[in-house]
Amino acid sequence: MDAFYASVEQRDHPELRGRPVAVGGTRERGVVAAASYEARAFGIRSAMASVTARRRCPDLVFVKPRFDVYRAVSLQIREIFADYTDLIEPLSLDEAYLDVTENRKAVASATRIAEEIRARIRERCGLTASAGVSYNKFLAKLASDHRKPDGLFVITPEMGAAFVEDLPVGRFHGIGPATSARMNRLGIFTGRDLRGRTLSFLQANFGKAGSFYHSIARGLDHRAVRADRVRKSIGAETTFFTDLTELDAMREGLLPLAEKVWRHGEASGIGGRTVTLKVKFADFTQITRARSGLAPVPDRASFERIALDLLQSLFPMARAVRLLGVTLSGLEEESGDRGRAQMDLGL
C-alpha cells in the first residue's frame, strides 16, 4: 500500500488531501508512524522524531493513529488477495507476498493478477497500491518499490541479475542501515560490488546471512511464500553516528525504538510478555538483557519503563555504546483485555 496510514487519513478527511500529513508524533518526543507523499517531499519519513519533522515542514499536520481503522482496511485488502490464492505471507498490515503460480482464477499472467488486485483495492477501499511481479520474493519486493506510488513493475528472469547490479545495497530488502554501512566500509556499495565478493568472504564477514547476500546479488532467492509464517518477535534497533557514553543520550536513542516496536504490535493486534534489550559496544561485542512477565506488557508506558530499567541496570558502563535495540517477544493475539492482568516484573 502507498503511505498506508497517511492515505487512509487523507481518504477519510478530505481537508487533509494534498497536504503534508504525518500519522503519530502527537506526544512529546514522539515519532512519525507514517508520512504522506506530500510530507515525504520534505524528507519526512517513518520513525523520524516529531521535532525533526516539524523543523523540516512547519505546515506538517499531525494526526493521531487509528489502528482499529487500519486493521479493518487491511482485512478488506486481505479478502481481495484470498480471491486469488491461499499462499499469502503478510509482512505487515499494508504489505504481503502472494504466490500466484497456481491461482483460483486460473489466470496465466501474474501481471494481470496484480493489475486486477490494484484496481479492486482502489474500487473497494479508495486507496492506491503498488505491486511488484517477479520470479522470487526478493525481486518482487524490489519491483514493488520501483514505481511507487500507484505503480506496477515487472522483473522478468532475463532482467533479474542485471536489475540488481547498479542498485545501492541500502535499497536491498533484508539489508538494513547498519549492515549497509558495514558493507560500505568493506567497499561494497552496489549489487555489482556485492556480486564480486566470494561466498567465503561474505560468510566470514556476515555469518549465515552471507549466503543470502551472495544469492540476491545474482537475482536468486529460493525462499517460498509461507502462508503459515509465525512471527516470534517484534524489534527495532539503531546504530548511532557517534558512540554513546551517557545514560541520557542512550535513553533518547532507546525511546523512539520502543515506541516504534509498541506501535507495530498495536497495529498488528498482538502483545508480548518478554522485553529484550540489545547493546552493541564500540568494540562490536554485544550483550542482551531480558525481562519476562506472566502476562503481556499492558501498555506502552510499561514497555518503555521496562526497556529503560534494563538499560539503567547496566550502568556504570565501562565501554561506549554504538547500537541499541529493543524487542518484544512471547507474542500472542490481543484478547481485548491485555491491560487487566498484573505483570510479574521480576528479573
Score class of each variant (00 low, 15 high):
residue 327 T to M: 02
residue 107 V to Y: 05
residue 242 T to H: 15
residue 194 L to H: 09
residue 109 S to K: 12
residue 110 A to I: 04
residue 182 R to A: 07
residue 100 V to I: 11
residue 162 A to H: 08
residue 133 V to W: 02
residue 11 R to I: 01
residue 258 A to W: 00
residue 4 F to W: 09
residue 58 P to D: 10
residue 173 H to D: 08
residue 59 D to Y: 07
residue 323 L to T: 05
residue 99 D to Q: 08
residue 181 A to F: 01
residue 71 R to Y: 06
residue 288 T to H: 00
residue 264 H to Y: 09
residue 12 D to W: 14
residue 316 P to H: 02
residue 20 P to M: 11
residue 154 V to E: 03
residue 276 T to P: 03
residue 47 A to W: 11
residue 239 T to F: 12
residue 73 V to Y: 09
residue 180 S to C: 11
residue 227 A to E: 09
residue 222 H to I: 02
residue 21 V to A: 09
residue 30 G to S: 02
residue 100 V to Q: 05
residue 266 E to P: 04
residue 52 T to D: 15
residue 231 R to V: 15
residue 41 A to S: 12
residue 312 Q to D: 13
residue 34 A to P: 11
residue 325 G to K: 08
residue 270 I to G: 02
residue 324 L to I: 07
residue 180 S to P: 00
residue 14 P to K: 09
residue 166 D to I: 14
residue 49 A to Y: 01
residue 258 A to S: 06
residue 161 A to L: 04
residue 307 A to H: 09
residue 103 N to R: 08
residue 270 I to K: 04
residue 316 P to N: 08
residue 126 G to C: 09
residue 343 M to D: 05
residue 237 E to K: 03
residue 339 G to F: 00
residue 205 N to I: 10
residue 123 E to C: 08
residue 346 G to M: 15
residue 213 Y to N: 05
residue 280 K to D: 06
residue 161 A to P: 06
residue 157 P to E: 01
residue 314 L to Y: 10
residue 339 G to S: 04
residue 6 A to L: 08
residue 185 R to N: 15
residue 133 V to S: 06
residue 266 E to C: 12
residue 188 I to G: 13
residue 124 R to P: 05
residue 213 Y to R: 11
residue 72 A to R: 07
residue 15 E to Q: 13
residue 269 G to T: 10
residue 198 T to G: 14
residue 175 I to G: 08
residue 241 F to N: 13
residue 46 S to Q: 10
residue 323 L to Q: 07
residue 208 K to S: 11
residue 333 E to F: 01
residue 33 A to F: 13
residue 287 I to V: 11
residue 195 R to P: 10
residue 202 L to C: 06
residue 260 K to Q: 09
residue 327 T to G: 00
residue 90 P to T: 03
residue 48 M to I: 06
residue 228 D to S: 12
residue 66 R to V: 04
residue 176 G to I: 11
residue 48 M to C: 10
residue 141 K to F: 05
residue 306 I to D: 07
residue 252 E to Q: 10
residue 34 A to M: 02
residue 264 H to G: 11
residue 152 L to C: 02
